[in-house]
């Protein structure tokens, strides 16, 4: 099956492979007659050049045709000691290299909407202050990762709406083009239940099946066209 029809219906599709597969994926993308998908990376370093053994430069990724870089995933924060400062610096590094930072955000513990929203806003605000142009924030509460039940739609709607208001209130000083997607366990029907507050979804394991991706892209497209 192909997502061609669905994806071209106003939904942007991004594939973020491992570093080793990026070049092949961009080649494959460039073979297509239509721009069906964009290629992203799963991390980068915060400097364009320098002696940082083993790290990947955002400048280099841009040269390979990478359009997005995922930054600050909960796994990286937990297992590799990724700090908020690194997330800010990496986002700025992407931004200055014309790559759109795709920043993973979320509160640690479950709480009321305002408390969670304020905690997540602390992750968003410095990124807005240090980047220009397009940004994507992928929201997933940390407490919901791997939990038996995903975060409730009401909670997601509440926090994302709270963040959207805060972002809109910054428009005069931060004129970024900001999209907020939901980054948690996504399955069929999720995006519909979110009442159009999110600008899309960030898929993990569920998206490893092309048929699942097709379904989700169609759902996101249907919600967006309402």
């Amino acid at each position: 099956s192909t997502v061609a029809t669905a994806a071209l219906n106003h939904v942007e599709l991004v594939v973020m492979p491992d570093f080793l597969s990026i070049r092949e994926c961009t080649r494959l993308k460039n073979r297509l007659d239509e721009p069906l998908f964009n290629v992203g990376a799963q991390d980068c370093w915060q400097a364009d050049e320098g002696a940082f053994t083993g790290e990947v430069s955002p400048k280099h990724l841009a040269q390979l045709g990478v359009r997005y870089v995922e930054i600050g995933h909960a796994e990286r924060r937990k297992q590799f000691g990724e700090t908020n400062e690194w997330v800010i610096n990496k986002s700025a590094a992407c931004s200055r290299n014309s790559i759109i930072p795709w920043i993973c955000i979320g509160e640690i513990n479950k709480g009321d909407i305002e408390a969670c929203g304020d905690e997540v806003w602390e992750q968003i605000k410095p990124v807005l202050d240090n980047c220009t142009g397009q940004l994507v924030f992928a929201y997933e509460p940390v407490w919901a990762i791997g939990a038996p039940k995903p975060a409730e739609s009401d909670h997601i709607i509440g926090v994302v709406s709270y963040l959207r208001k805060k972002i809109d209130a910054e428009k005069e000083t931060n004129n970024n083009d900001v999209r907020i997607v939901y980054g948690g366990s996504a399955g069929p029907g999720l995006v519909e239940s979110l009442n159009g507050v999110v600008d899309g979804l960030f898929l993990g394991r569920f998206g490893h099946n092309p048929d699942n991706v097709k379904k989700v892209v169609e759902e996101v497209g249907a919600v967006a066209s309402k």
Partner: peptide, 29 residues
Amino acid sequence: TRQPVVAISLKMYFDPAKTLQFVSALAGI
């Protein structure tokens, strides 16, 4: 209006051939 976006982070593939197979299937190639 903001363009909706769906992204897939291919974290669980540790085989470049499998990754390419997935992307090819997605693209209908």
